[in-house]
Amino acid sequence: MTTSPPRPRTPAATATLWKWSWMLAALFWTLVYRLARAGGAVQDFVYVNF
């Protein structure tokens, strides 16, 4: 049986920076992606149809 060592805690400032960077990048990418396919409809979520 092997046990993995405990992970070091991510400093709060790094985690916050990561989350803000992620949000801006995801928003930017989403908008660019959607704009690039303007007119192409995205299907609604699968489970909405149930």
């Binding site: 803000w20 992620w22 995801a26 928003l27 989403t30 992606y33 959607r34 995205v42």
Partner: peptide, 20 residues
């Protein structure tokens, strides 16, 4: 606000980019 914004943007990215 930060935690909610993170989840919302991650959700949009997963659906509109990866699932699409």
């Amino acid at each position: 606000l930060l935690a909610s914004g993170y989840r919302v943007t991650r959700g949009l990215f997963r659906k509109l980019c990866l699932a699409y």
